[in-house]
């Protein structure tokens, strides 16, 4: 499959990099990773693990100090000294990799929902009739169409984030990056956003990079990448990753309770698989055990 996003030995530091690299504090260090079209990847890490820097490197808000980030084959570095050329280049990248942030209030620009969703395509110079079509489609895709005339500040947190997602969809990106977009929401809002993103992936085949510190949100991904101290320390399917409960706890992360429970049960000698991820799997395994 095609690679939409590729990190090629990327390092990044917020400090000035000196000759003596051993003293530089890197936010991201030697990260190589590629994300294929249609994948659903969860990036896990505690605060300060480098996962937010990772997000900002994806669409050229930050550019690597070493190595390069390729979006659809294009490096996020400026291609030339010419300002107009650079602008066109970076817009191409940002159109392809859409980003949704943490605070729902700080990414909505307009005073009416549909006008906000139109903001991206307007910046891209899309034809007005086409914008109208995209806005309606995007709002329908996130289930906010009936709110198109509303004022954003009167919506709930989950609804605001769905509007923000619609605003990105209207740019018709190839990849959706969510940078801790559920961190400030209540459980209901988190469910709304998770279900919306899931639907976009399943129905429209959207490539999703979901950055979070909530385990339960990573469980449903195709692939989980765990970051710590700027490095990628695990990369695999949820089952492969969550088996390492000890290691995850060491880097300040949880494991799903279902997984923890199975691991603990197997420790006392019971015959249960240790890679159960959700309630249903665990109930199945335990029923089998109890019926023996």
């Amino acid at each position: 499959m095609e690679e939409i996003l590729k990190f090629d030995n990327v390092s990044f530091s917020y400090d000035e990099i000196t000759e003596d690299t051993s003293r530089t504090e890197y936010a991201i260090r030697n990260v190589s990773l590629s994300i294929k079209t249609g994948e659903y990847v969860a990036v896990l890490g505690h605060n300060g693990s480098g996962k937010s820097t990772f997000a900002k490197l994806c669409n050229g808000i930050l550019v690597p100090d070493e190595g390069q980030v390729l979006v659809n084959g294009l490096s996020t570095h400026n291609p030339s000294d010419d300002e107009t050329e650079n602008l066109e280049h970076i817009m191409k990248i940002r159109k392809d990799v859409g980003m949704v942030f943490q605070n729902p209030d700080n990414q909505i620009v307009a005073t009416i929902v549909e006008e906000d969703v139109a903001f991206g395509p307007e910046n891209l110079g899309v034809d007005p009739l086409e914008i109208r079509k995209r806005v309606d489609e995007s709002l329908k895709a996130v289930g906010m169409y009936e709110y198109r005339g509303h004022e954003p500040h009167k919506l709930s947190g989950g609804q605001k984030q769905r509007v923000a997602i619609a605003g990105i969809l209207a740019m018709q990106p190839r990849c959706l990056v969510l940078d801790e977009s559920t961190a400030m929401l209540d459980p209901r809002g988190r469910r709304e956003v998770m279900n919306t993103v899931r639907k976009l992936h399943d129905d429209l085949g959207m490539t999703v990079v979901f950055i979070t510190h909530f385990m339960d949100e990573a469980v449903t991904a195709d692939r989980v990448v765990v970051m710590d101290k700027g490095h990628v320390i695990m990369d695999g399917t949820p089952k492969e990753v969550f088996k390492n409960a000890e290691r995850l706890r060491e880097v300040g992360l949880d494991v799903p309770q279902a997984t923890e429970f199975s691991i603990e049960l197997s420790k006392i000698g019971l015959n249960v698989p240790t890679d159960t991820l959700n309630t249903d799997e665990c109930v199945e395994a335990l029923s089998a055990l109890l019926e023996e």
């Binding site: 339960d216 799903p256 309770q257 279902a258 429970f261 959700n278 309630t279 249903d280 665990c282 109930v283 335990l286 029923s287 109890l290």
Partner: peptide
């Protein structure tokens, strides 16, 4: 909690 749901399921 998930654990509660597991026991409700059982």
């Amino acid at each position: 909690p998930q654990i509660t749901k597991i026991f409700m399921g059982l």
